[in-house]
Design a protein around this nucleic acid. Structure first.
Lengths: 333, 333
DNA sequence: ATCGTTGTCGATAACGTTTTCGACACAACC
DNA sequence: GGTTGTGTCGAAAACGTTATCGACAACGAT
């Protein structure tokens, strides 16, 4: 009978000869419906292939069993995170909804609040926001941020030890004899980018190497935003012999730029990345990088948001260790 | 004033001193509202940080500008696809919503229809379903499937040339002198798995090698489902000297199993995968595999579903080429 | 017989939005 | 001064669901 495709609860009710209220009770296992009635309704539901609309359901009752993952874009980091989250969700009974608006180049700021407003209070019970700039603590639903971590008073956060990782990467280059080490930065509004730069500076300072500010450029964690600074670094009169890029995508782009300029990696230029996304192993030679346990970070974020939803008390900050992975793009000077 | 977190259109209306209808018109640029009123409402919207709820909006009007990507699980293939889709969506004005229910081990069948019923007609304008078993053509919204392709009469589909790819993989092994080549199959309900097995058989037949049915086992595209058949193959009295696994995840698991059994790859066993997901480069040595242009497949799927939504006439079947990528896990006998 | 209890069911009001349509004021026309 | 337009607005219905609460019947206990 269903007029236009969709089978509604009304269709089920009509077919089964009961009211929509009763059908709703059957679906949600509410008390107060006779066994035979329930059986009949179940039968009709199976017959018609009815599935309740998430949308209508969530509009009415503030509970959907869906956790939202809000990302600006599906790039390697956020999809790795997604894999970790997906593995961890299996046993929880929650469903996953990863959302990404079609962002224009210019409104890449403030998307977090916008997405949250559009989905929260209705579609999702909790959210994991990936690399948000600002996250408003006074939200209706629990929110966990991945990346920012501005001290113990900040919002619930999962991140990794960016400072130690960047330090290790830079120390690795220094130990190979590099003294002119360039830094291609990340998104300036992110704490992780700040910490990675800090680790770079700390390591150089410890080694007694003065930081040449010409060698410290700002990128944005995206290949297209790495292009200009990479060119700039590699065209310097006194070219750096090594570059530490703030994430793998930038490092990969740096290698490409180096190739375009006729430089060999690692013979003429050593490159280190950060993240250890699977793509980092695809370059030739494979990229030396700092590994973040991204899957584990995703799993932690999921556990945290579930705990917050269910009201379980817990430490709202998790920081996981990083580790240097030496592969093929670094070499002694 | 907002009582419980969420700012609704009602709050905006009250604050601006107009009706909700007027606010709605302002938001949607409908005709019939005075410029000054519009300006005032816009101001209030900015002040209150109002964002219309996707849920309520989509419940009422059958148009959301959101495209759903329905997956059983966020594993490497579907997330690669997601990246391709995400790149292609930028210019279209659509938003992306990737959905994955928390599937239990046993209800991995029929999830496509279930997800579709829950989201379609309401939340999303069109859907891309990744490796569905059945896809009902009589749906309310346009649906593009990635993977199945049962002839020109099937539903709109994007896939790759599985047959040629599997053929190339097997021929590669044969050309290296392998005659006992095992096949670790994929999800039996998928056309791609069928075709990959067919390509394997064809190549062996062409080479004049009889197919030993003991060497053809069924897996399921997942590491856990590859475990048993991998063990089985490698414990055979007459062990195969090479294994062609129907996807990279299975191939990677096969390598691990081989290691556990004390076999060296590629010295004692050559392994070829299928897909060329980034993870395939992470193994040591990196995996020889058949490359599918997954990003491009995602982009094609997106273009197709957008065309279908907008009613543009187009060929509902796209098949992209595959290519053998020889890396480190294969060696001459 | 009456009363409370228990079990079953359905009307109905929300949830936040869009859309339709009628109300109203005002200007312009004959 | 009536009639017709034109511009602006709001009341109300609708979307598909859940939650509340009252109606009703059957039944056992007084």
């Amino acid at each position: 009978m269903q007029a236009s495709g969709r089978v509604t609860i009304g269709d089920v009710a009509r077919t089964a000869g009961v009211s929509v209220a009763t059908v709703s009770k059957v679906i949600n296992d509410r008390y107060g419906v006779a066994p035979e009635t329930s059986a009949r309704v179940h039968e009709v539901i199976a017959d018609l292939g009815y599935e309740s609309s998430i949308v209508a359901r969530s509009l009415r009752s503030r509970r959907t069993n869906v956790i939202g993952i809000l990302v600006a874009e599906f790039e390697p980091f956020s999809t790795e995170l997604l894999k970790g989250i997906s593995e961890a969700v299996e046993s929880t009974g929650y469903e996953l909804l990863a959302y990404s608006g079609g962002l224009r180049r210019d409104d890449r700021v403030g998307w977090e609040q916008r997405y949250l407003s559009r989905l929260a209070g209705t579609l999702i019970d909790g959210a994991i926001i990936v690399t948000p700039t600002v996250v408003n603590p006074r939200n209706s639903i629990p929110v966990v941020a991945v990346d920012p971590h501005r001290g113990p008073s900040g919002p619930p956060t999962v991140d990794s030890d960016n400072l130690a990782g960047a330090r290790a990467a830079t120390e690795h280059l220094v130990s190979l004899g590099h003294t002119r080490v360039g830094f291609l930065g990340g998104r300036p509004d992110l704490e992780s980018a700040r910490l990675r730069e800090q680790g770079y500076r700390d390591a150089l300072a410890d080694a007694g190497i003065r930081v040449d500010e010409d060698l410290v450029l700002v990128g944005g964690y995206r290949p297209d935003l790495a292009d200009t600074p990479a060119h700039e670094l590699l065209r310097l009169p006194e070219r750096p012999t090594a570059i530490f890029a703030a994430n793998d995508l930038s490092a990969i782009r740096t290698i490409e730029v180096a190739r375009e300029l006729g430089l060999r990696v690692p013979e003429d230029l050593s490159v280190v990345g950060f993240d250890n996304v699977p793509e980092s192993a695809l370059t030739v030679p494979p990229l030396t990088t700092v590994s973040q346990p991204i899957h584990q970070m995703g799993a932690e974020a999921l556990r945290m948001v579930v705990d917050l939803i269910q009201g379980n008390p817990r430490d709202p900050h998790v920081r996981l260790p990083t580790e240097l992975v030496v592969r093929g793009t670094t070499r002694a000077l």
